[in-house]
Design a protein around this nucleic acid. Structure first.
Lengths: 216, 216
DNA sequence: TAACGAACCGGACCGAGGTCCGTTTAATGT
DNA sequence: ACATTAAACGGACCTCGGTCCGGTTCGTTA
């Protein structure tokens, strides 16, 4: 196991119930990366993206990516830790945009709107984003043990908890935020839209309703 | 892929929004199994259980089980389909007891109590059961694509949807039931209790609160 | 009881994720 | 320019889940 660079948001795991200040990760990619490392990283991401476009996210093997990038297999793992890390890196751009939007973008997603409206907005935004990148998000799904340690998800959950705390101060926001996260999880969205054929509108209505009930 | 016997509850996938009549699977195990097959099945389950007890669920490999049962590796897969199937079979007994309890047991879990109370009860029961078998349940976690097709979960979700329909007829019970399922999912329970150290009481209180909000 | 076919058995085999470690190379200091 | 060293490289190697298929066994029918 290795000390490969932190991908998305913050790294250390604050104790569960802590207020947990929200902050993005480094503004750019890896802080300082050796020239060859940076070059290979770029090559790998490009190769991976191409393979995803060609064969779908599911059919992308680590070895194939390595070969396509003219790089050793070990290098892939050194850089991205594991398969999930590589796929996650592919989603990094979109993820950062999303984070910026709900952390400091214009209302109702960003600060300025009342918390309940922000809750609605963040659900909509996530649903929209997910239906686009569903394949990749699904393939990037981390193993059950790490699912809740993924920085991006910790950040989002913290955000939901914050909004909930503002909207319903007398509730257990931590637990409720987990409930809301469940509704927005890529696997569920995939199941409902792709496997069950529900239209996006119904999921959005469901989110509205859920937010109403939870904050009501 | 194979036609290995249906493990827990019903098999065919009814269209999403259907009323979905609830029914258990066969009262006993596989309907009719050849003598040697039944013998090997028993051996395998026994061996698997022993290995779980010794090395924990995570450290149980299919080959090890096969060896411990004096059986070929292919036989394990023929019988149980895949690793998840084997682990799931280990949970079968407990699962059936749970199903029987909420389908036809005494109130408030079984029929007879008002739906909201039954909702509360099923949550309590599941939380209790999960904290016991957490390791196994975690190891038996199916791959994301199949998570919602697992018969036992389909059955439970259908049950929740039914109770919700009775308790809040004007809501989208299907969607809400998924939300409730999320709160009760083994991975979340594991994360909250084991990784975050929340006491079971808090999870129970959270379930109470969630049911109130959702049905309120 | 002999014969037959379906179901079952077993272990060689494969693919893919992940690790290891000897070698190479980029940055830094002299 | 050269030495030094930490970092990066690469591919052989390992593990483990899952498949395949030739041989075997059970249960049935004649």
């Amino acid at each position: 196991m290795s000390a490969f660079p932190p991908p998305l948001a913050e790294q250390p795991q604050p104790p569960f119930d802590e207020p947990q200040l929200l902050q993005l990760g480094a503004p750019e990619d890896e802080p300082c990366l050796r020239a060859d490392a940076a070059r290979n990283r770029a090559r790998l991401l490009e190769a991976a993206a191409r393979l995803v476009a060609e064969h779908g996210a599911a059919g992308v093997t680590m070895e194939a990516v390595a070969v396509a990038a003219n790089v050793g297999k070990g290098t892939v793992f050194r850089r991205f830790g594991d398969r999930t890390g590589l796929l996650t890196a592919l989603l990094d751009h979109s993820e950062r945009k999303f984070q910026a939007a709900f952390l400091s973008g214009p209302p109702p997603l960003g600060p300025g709107a009342p918390p309940v409206e922000r809750l609605r907005a963040v659900g909509y935004a996530l649903l929209r984003r997910s239906v686009d990148e569903l394949d990749l998000q699904l393939a990037a799904e981390p193993s059950p043990e790490r699912r809740f340690s993924v920085p991006a998800r910790r950040l989002l959950r913290g955000h939901l908890a914050l909004l909930l705390r503002q909207a319903v101060p007398d509730a257990d926001s931590e637990l409720l935020s987990h409930t809301l996260m469940g509704y927005l999880s890529p696997v569920l969205i995939h199941h409902l839209t792709r496997q069950c054929g529900l239209p996006l509108e119904r999921l959005e209505a469901g989110w509205d309703d859920l937010v109403d009930r939870v904050t009501g």
